[in-house]
């Protein structure tokens, strides 16, 4: 996963990561603007603090979303009464939500790293996969919940 998405290919050839730029200029701190480059290379400057704060708030919002998924999964498994005729129903619903919470936390951090790298380089922000993953998973879990409720109602009657 590189920081340069498909939108970011308009500039000169980019190295694979910030380490590549640091390897070329080991004496220059990453927070200082680089001097005029002799060849095609990426300059990294410290972005506006407000952009960094906004990026951090986005990461925190994903973190809270992850915690909400974990709490929902735990509540389904521990607090819901068992579905009649579907004793495994609570675990089928709850455990994927908890796993999704862990995935959101990890991917959210990677997303923060990619966004911060793009901000430092002045590139377009990379696309985030998290909204799509969230929408698909939530829809799938709702369908699974509907199926489990239907099976439970049929078995109960």
């Amino acid at each position: 996963m590189t920081g340069a998405g498909p939108e970011a290919g308009a500039g000169p050839q980019l190295p694979a990561g910030p380490q590549a730029s640091a390897a070329r200029e080991p004496a220059r701190p990453a927070t200082q603007p680089a001097a005029a480059p002799a060849g095609p290379q990426v300059t990294e400057t410290e972005p506006d603090a407000r952009f960094t704060f906004a990026n951090e708030r986005t990461f925190l919002a994903w973190t809270r979303t992850a915690l909400a998924f974990i709490a929902a999964g735990l509540a389904i498994v521990q607090l819901l009464p068992p579905f009649p005729g579907v004793p495994w129903g609570r675990h089928v619903l709850g455990i994927p939500l908890i796993v999704l919470g862990a995935v959101i936390a990890g991917v959210g951090y990677l997303q923060w790293t990619r966004n911060q790298r793009a901000l430092r380089r002045g590139e377009p922000l990379p696309r985030s996969l998290l909204p799509r993953v969230l929408a698909v998973t939530t829809t799938a879990m709702a369908l699974v919940a509907a199926v489990i409720l239907l099976i439970s109602a049929l078995v109960d009657h």
Partner: peptide
Amino acid sequence: ALAVTGVALAALGVA
């Protein structure tokens, strides 16, 4: 991020 992953593992164990 690591703490949320740890919470998820703890919740998984409890679940």
